[in-house]
Design a protein around this nucleic acid. Structure first.
Length: 283
DNA sequence: ATGCCTATTATTAATAGA
């Protein structure tokens, strides 16, 4: 099962790129951010023709998030964070797909620091972190995927010293991310690639993509029960080089099917009823 | 310290992004 997150920077201006990428990669689940379109301008028909059903929460001009799934309509769980459902900024949507809770987020940028926008970022993350904690406590297999607008460590920035006072790298937001991981979440890219320089965003400015002057700000976080199923994670970096492309690249993970207990001499077979349930939960 | 580039919206410029 392949799950991807992609900040498209305008779903309508980017539709050809998104469709080309979907056709090429065929992910099972996709979290999209920065639709930059109101609900009524979401290209549902084109995505349906590409084989995806969608849930979305748009907004005029800015923000907007969506969840796509190939195996039928994602089961809506919520739009907006629970502590402030009336936040006019569309930055969170949650659904259930194939038995997994998928939270799709577009965290505030927060620049410039200091200022009201940075304060809003911290306040938003306070609400998001509280929700994330409840999801862990609920115990269901859960993925939180999206544009976090945080470089977690110096390994995630091409020139860390230039970013120390930027809202994406300030110590306050790095702390927020570290505390999220302490709740029990696994950063999938880092789990698979502990020391590699991997970026998910390259500025349109200064020929950043060609120079690989990038940032790792799009993340896929896995709940404790899903982490053992992680078999691959990566970034479709080539997409960033396409015509009329987003400044972000799609970031993805692959999960192994649920393991079914094997009847071996070393390990006793589980009770029949339990084994049946495990088999049913496969994929 | 700032512009660079790109998208959206509303009228040729402002705002936001990261």
């Amino acid at each position: 099962m392949r799950i991807a997150t992609y900040n498209v920077n305008g779903i309508n201006g980017r539709l050809a790129v998104v469709l080309r990428w979907l056709e090429q990669v065929q992910p099972d689940v996709v979290c999209l951010q920065e639709l930059k379109a109101p609900d009524e301008r979401f290209p549902e028909e084109a995505l349906n023709k590409a084989g995806y059903r969608a849930l979305w929460r748009g907004q005029k001009s800015w923000n907007g998030v969506a969840i796509l799934a190939r195996d039928g309509l994602p089961l809506a769980a919520r739009a907006g964070l629970p502590t402030d459902p009336d936040d006019p900024q569309s930055r969170y949507i949650e659904a259930e797909v194939s038995g997994i809770i998928i939270g799709c987020l577009y965290a505030p940028n927060g620049n410039p620091w200091p200022g009201a926008k940075f304060d809003y970022k911290l306040a938003w993350y306070k609400r998001f972190s509280a929700h994330a904690k409840k999801l862990i406590a609920a115990g269901a297999p859960t993925i939180l995927a999206g544009d976090y607008n945080i470089m977690p460590t110096e390994l995630d920035v091409y020139k860390p010293e230039r970013w120390v006072n930027d809202a994406l790298f300030r110590v306050e937001v790095r702390d927020v991310y570290a505390k999220l991981l302490k709740q029990g979440w696994t950063d999938a890219i880092r789990a698979r690639h502990p020391t590699a320089r991997i970026y998910t965003f390259w500025d349109y400015f200064r020929n950043a993509y060609a120079r690989n002057a990038g940032l790792r700000i799009d993340h896929v976080l896995l709940s404790p029960d899903l982490a053992p199923r992680l078999i691959a994670a990566g970034v479709d970096g080539a997409v960033r080089g396409w015509e009329k492309t987003s400044d972000h690249a799609p970031t993805w993970i692959q999960l192994a099917p649920v393991k079914v207990a094997k009847k071996t001499a070393a390990r006793k077979a589980k009770p029949a009823a339990k084994a049946k349930t495990a088999k049913k939960a496969k994929r």
